[in-house]
């Protein structure tokens, strides 16, 4: 099982954080200085899960983002989006969800497919999503596995 770690990279204007593993109650974000750049890019691609204790640790970490800074999130899973929508403070104000995954589920074979959706700017509309696609595994109909109205709630703030 992937160990938790955060790898950091400083660019001229951006502080990039790539998170690996599960965000659980025993993770530590100590030693990560979020004041170094005003743009903080968080990549969730390698996050394998987040539990309720991890949510608490994450929120405490996000409280350290300076008010003038901006957090840009990429490769957000459904679980991350659900937490963004449900929990105030999961992301600080001025955050932007740049890319996120939308899942499709095929009841015929139980297979799941995910598509990565990208937004260039917060004001840009989300591309229209097909309710059904052809399952890559069995060819039957796979249905979008989100309630679009509630799942997309984040786009009003982030």
């Amino acid at each position: 099982m992937a160990m938790f770690k955060v790898s950091e990279k400083l660019f001229e204007k951006i502080h990039r954080l790539t998170i690996y593993g599960k965000i659980a109650e025993d993770v530590s974000f100590d030693g990560i200085d979020l004041t170094q750049r005003t743009i903080i890019h968080v990549d969730f691609k390698h996050v394998i899960g987040i539990n309720s204790g991890g949510i608490r640790e994450w929120i405490n970490f996000m409280k350290k983002v300076p008010r003038k800074s901006r957090v840009i999130c990429t490769n957000c899973s459904v679980e991350i989006i659900n937490q963004v929508n449900m929990i105030e403070g999961f992301l600080p104000l001025r955050s932007f969800i740049k890319t996120f995954f939308v899942p499709y589920f095929c009841e015929s074979c139980g297979n799941q497919t995910e598509f990565l959706i990208e937004r260039k700017r917060r004001v840009d509309p989300i591309p229209e999503l097909d309710e059904f696609i052809k399952c890559h595994k069995c060819g039957e109909e796979a249905e979008i596995d989100i309630l679009e109205s509630s799942f997309m709630a984040f786009k009003e703030k982030f």
């Binding site: 659980a24 394998i48 899960g49 539990n51 899973s77 899942p103 589920f105 074979c109 297979n111 799941q112």
Partner: peptide
């Protein structure tokens, strides 16, 4: 042996984690 989807790869580990935590 079960299909790999959000239930088997995400929901089950999350529930076990919450139970045990």
């Amino acid at each position: 042996a079960l299909p790999r989807n959000q239930v088997t790869t995400s929901a089950v580990p999350l529930i076990i984690d919450e139970f045990m935590t």
